[in-house]
Design a binder for these strands. Structure first.
Length: 415
RNA sequence: GCGGGCGUAGCUCAGUAGGUUAGAGCGCUGGAUUGUGGCUCCGGAGGUCGUGGGUUCGAAACCCAUCGUUCGCCCCA
């Protein structure tokens, strides 16, 4: 009987993990600069939380949720995104009236068919601002995104699309107008788009179907911008003015988001280097969500970064620590030699002291030292232990000398 | 949930008009003067040919199913 990892779930090993840490560290640095603190919410939540927030029309809830009944008969789901759980926790703590700037990172789960940039267990970093009405916060949110792109050095690979969905009333109104218009062309629409006409007409705006594109190009198609108030259009313009010099940012009135709870500003960052799943940051304002979940009415805006996708875009730069490979050749009481290694580690946290941990031949241990990328080898045999002088070998220079522990520590401090 | 490609050693891949013990390179591992790496040389380990059925005297190869993977659709970060 053989086990393998579940479909769409990956084991992330050493070198890949290193990439992840480098990514995390860059993102963290930017978030720290904005004074955004971390929140950790559970991965499991009540099933209905997601039905209520994400929307019962969306595929995420309809067919992509990992859900089950626990031993107590409660309906549980693995989180498909992070906003719902975070908002739930804020309301539960009764702090929704206080402003919050928070981020979270972690795995999310959707039962989808895996493909490039899409896994069943994937990772998101989310940022949520609560208690900041439309205006300054919207600008700061885009500013964070701009800084993230810059920190990752991927600004040139990315396009930020922005749109405004207006108030909930405007959203509904436009939705109705669009639906009414499209009904005349229903027969020309693809099967999928015809279904969307009922479930979520706005989604047809970014349909990839050719006939839908033709219809959407018609001059009498209701235009979102015609429904929007001037102040909303002005917000979009000011975002272009603020970030246009550093980023490719453009207004796209056909941009709608899949999650029901968005109102107001919405945005999405895409890259043409990612294949079909080209969007790696997405978010927007969701001023109605908190009250819908039973909290006091409070404005909110946030976004999520698809970390698995970002990982395909950025080139990590690793910090480098010198590495000493510890080779123990002593025959008896081998632990005495390992004490030397411990003393070196105590003397400096900026150096790696890695043990080979075998009694194989010196030749094979040195080969190993080379493969491990060691800068130095510390070789200790019985004779060295007796004399308290150890072999310190510079693997790059191919030179070596006998030195005491104190001399080794002195050398390390000079590195 | 739908469609296409792929699945032979840890990795990248050879191997088919079906035919004896399935190969290469890299990697791993041991050795080439006693306790000295990288280059070189010699040796070794490692594969139920994704899995399960079927066709056949005979299947890695042909057929079916299944699982996985990959690229799209859909969905979305």
């Amino acid at each position: 009987m053989k086990f393998h990892s579940l479909r769409g779930m990956q084991d992330i090993f050493q070198d890949d993990s290193k990439r992840w840490r480098a990514l995390r560290s860059i993102l963290q640095t930017v978030l720290d600069q904005y004074g955004i603190g971390e929140v950790q919410n559970p991965i499991l939540e009540n099933l209905n939380l997601f039905v209520r927030t994400v929307g019962d029309a969306s595929d995420i809830v309809n067919k992509e949720l990992y859900s089950f009944e626990d031993r107590n008969g409660e309906h549980i789901a693995l989180r498909p995104e992070g906003t719902a759980g975070f908002i739930r926790s804020v309301i539960e703590k009764k702090i929704e009236h206080e402003s919050q700037k928070a981020f979270y990172v972690g795995p999310m789960f959707r039962y989808e068919r895996p493909q490039k940039g899409r896994f069943r267990q994937f990772h998101q970093l989310g940022v949520e601002y609560i208690g900041f009405p439309e205006g300054d916060a919207d600008i700061e949110i885009i500013s964070i995104i701009s800084d993230l792109l810059e920190g990752l050095k991927i600004s040139k690979k990315a396009v930020i699309n922005i749109n405004h969905l207006g108030t909930n009333d405007v959203k509904q109104e436009y939705c109705r107008a669009l639906k009414e218009f499209l009904l005349d062309y229903k027969d020309s629409l693809s099967e999928i788009d015809q279904k969307r006409l009922d479930s979520n007409p706005l989604r047809i705006l970014d349909s990839k179907d050719e006939s839908a594109k033709d219809i959407l190009a018609l001059s009498d198609l209701p235009q979102y911008q015609d429904f929007l108030a001037n102040q909303h259009l002005d917000l979009l313009d000011s975002l272009i003015a603020s970030f246009g010099s550093k980023n490719a940012i453009k207004i796209n009135h056909k941009l709608v988001r899949g999650l029901d709870y968005y109102t107001g500003l919405v945005f999405e960052v895409v890259s043409n280097e990612l294949g079909a799943q080209d969007s790696f940051i997405g978010g927007g304002r969701y001023d109605n969500l908190i009250s819908e979940l039973g909290g006091r009415p409070q404005s909110a805006i946030g976004f999520a970064v698809g970390l698995d996708r970002v990982l395909n875009l950025f080139e990590p730069v690793y910090s480098y620590k010198k590495k000493v490979i510890f080779i123990n050749l002593t025959g008896s009481d081998r632990h005495h030699a390992y004490n030397i290694a411990s003393k070196i580690r105590e003397a400096s946290k900026n150096i790696i002291v890695e043990s080979i941990l075998t009694d194989a031949s010196l030749k094979s241990q040195l080969r190993k030292a080379n493969k491990l990328g060691g800068d130095f080898a510390l070789i200790i045999g019985d004779g060295e232990m007796t004399n308290k002088k150890f072999i310190w070998k510079d693997l790059n220079e191919s030179s070596q000398e006998f030195v005491t522990l104190e001399e080794i520590i002195g050398k390390i401090h000079q590195l």
